[in-house]
């Protein structure tokens, strides 16, 4: 018995590093992907700061907050990365982009839109879902009443069939 518990405990311990390992791998992949782009690109990628913040702060299991912000933030940073790459991926070009407030407005604004979506959409979705669920609840209640009307209160009980019959005098 105790051996089983120990094994279980070991498995749980082994399972935890897997989650951290995934993050590490993800970071390494991102780093690996970014490596060919060089420092100027990384400089422009500072515009992905909201995504990095979300990466750290989003505790949701599905990482849907990270995804929402990350997709939008990336969509906002991508035009500047293309612009940098078209201009030879130099530090001057990168700095020119970084120095422009407009660039930051676009990059961070896009992430802000992601935030806005994350703030506004879930309540709407929840409301629509719950309206639907209330309707379903009414239908189920009617179904229960119908069953009770057909079979009597015994349909809700757990007494044996013979006991039900004898209680009805049958």
């Amino acid at each position: 018995m105790s051996e089983n518990q120990e094994e279980k405990g070991k498995k749980e311990k082994n399972a935890k590093p897997k989650k951290g390992g995934f993050k590490l791998i993800l970071v390494m992949v991102v780093m690996g992907c970014l490596a060919p782009f060089g420092v100027p690109t990384l400089l422009v990628c500072m515009g992905l700061a909201p995504t990095l913040v979300a990466l750290v702060t989003d505790t949701d299991e599905n990482r849907s907050g990270l995804a929402t912000i990350g997709y939008m933030n990336f969509a906002g940073v991508l035009p500047f990365l293309i612009d940098l790459w078209q201009n030879g991926q130099t530090m001057e070009a990168a700095l020119a982009i970084v120095r422009q407030p407009f660039s930051w407005a676009i990059m961070l604004g896009a992430a802000g839109i992601g935030h806005l979506i994350l703030y506004a959409v879930p309540p709407v979705i929840a409301s629509v879902f719950l309206i639907n669920q209330e309707s379903r609840l009414r239908t189920l209640r009617e179904g229960m009443q119908q069953l009770e009307a057909i079979w009597g209160p015994d349909v809700a009980s757990t007494t044996s069939l013979d006991a039900v019959k004898s209680s009805r005098g049958g």
Partner: peptide, 29 residues
């Protein structure tokens, strides 16, 4: 579910938000 609206919003709304954001981001990209 009705008694835990926030949880429903979190569990259902956030993935949908991510989907909407991904769709929007794809369009922008």
């Amino acid at each position: 579910n009705i008694n835990n609206k926030n949880q429903v919003a979190r569990e259902m709304g956030r993935p949908i938000s991510a989907s909407i954001a991904s769709l929007l981001a794809l369009i922008l990209i």
